[in-house]
Simulated scan of single mutants.
Amino acid sequence: MTRALFLWLLAGFLSASAATAQGLVPLRDGASVAFLGITFIDTSTEGAYNPVRADETARLALVQDYVQTRFAETGFAMLDLDPITTDLATVTNPADCYGCETRLAARLDADYVLVGEVQKVSNLILSMNLVLRAVPSGEVVRARAVDIRSNTDDSWLRGMRYIFKTHMFVEG
């Protein structure tokens, strides 16, 4: 478990360093975004023995609403997912599906596809990430991971706010 966390942190550091060194790809004003949601992954001991917790399900909805609202308020056109709902329902994790997120977004004629994950390592340590890819190329134009401490509404929102503040709408 420690090795996986180390690799995750290293990947985040390297991507942040590369983005700083090369500058970020500018986002197109008014572009369309297919937000396929955020997947909750519980790799904690608690998750191995207990059913899905209602408070974590509610937090996931809270964070997804925050992301949707931030993109819409910034001027992006958030696309309706109805045309791909059936196919999207067969995908366990759109953030880890070998490019299916880009193919699904292309069917909506999206400019970008947005996916994320929240991984619960323990009730104290969680990791969240958000990835914005260009459609149809699949090129990552924004990606950030952050570790948060504590499993509360406030900590989840604080983590996502940090992603937005430090990377999502920052221009290189």
Rank of each mutant, 00 (worst) to 15 (best):
M1K: 09
T2W: 03
R3Q: 14
A4W: 05
W8L: 14
L9N: 14
L10V: 12
L10P: 00
A11T: 10
S15W: 15
A19F: 02
T20Q: 14
A21W: 14
Q22R: 11
G23F: 08
P26G: 03
P26Y: 02
L27W: 03
R28T: 14
G30F: 08
A31F: 02
S32E: 09
S32D: 09
V33K: 06
V33P: 07
F35S: 07
F40V: 03
F40P: 00
I41Y: 01
I41E: 09
I41S: 12
T43S: 11
S44A: 01
S44I: 01
T45P: 00
E46D: 10
G47D: 06
A48H: 04
N50S: 13
V52F: 06
R53Q: 09
R53W: 04
E56N: 13
E56S: 06
A58Y: 08
A58D: 13
R59W: 08
R59D: 05
L60N: 06
L60M: 12
L62F: 04
Q64G: 15
Q64T: 12
Y66F: 15
Q68V: 01
T69D: 13
R70P: 00
G75A: 10
G75W: 10
G75Q: 06
F76N: 09
L79I: 03
D80E: 13
D80R: 08
D80W: 07
P83V: 08
P83E: 08
T86A: 12
D87S: 08
L88A: 05
L88W: 01
L88N: 02
T90E: 09
V91F: 01
N93A: 06
P94Y: 04
G99D: 01
E101A: 15
L104R: 03
L104E: 04
A105C: 06
A106M: 07
D109E: 10
A110C: 05
Y112D: 04
V113T: 14
L114R: 02
V115S: 02
G116Q: 02
E117A: 04
V118I: 14
S122N: 13
N123H: 10
N123G: 15
N123S: 14
I125G: 00
I125H: 05
I125W: 04
L126R: 07
S127Q: 13
S127I: 03
S127M: 11
M128N: 03
L130Y: 04
V131T: 15
V131F: 00
L132F: 07
R133A: 04
P136F: 09
S137P: 02
S137Q: 00
G138V: 02
E139N: 11
E139R: 10
R142D: 06
R142M: 05
R144S: 11
R144C: 07
D147C: 01
D147H: 07
D147F: 15
S150E: 06
T152M: 04
T152S: 15
D154Y: 09
D154S: 05
D154G: 05
L157Y: 08
L157M: 12
R158A: 15
M160W: 02
M160V: 03
Y162R: 09
Y162D: 07
F164C: 06
K165Q: 15
K165S: 14
K165C: 00
K165Y: 09
K165V: 05
M168V: 10
V170T: 11
V170K: 13
E171I: 05
G172E: 11
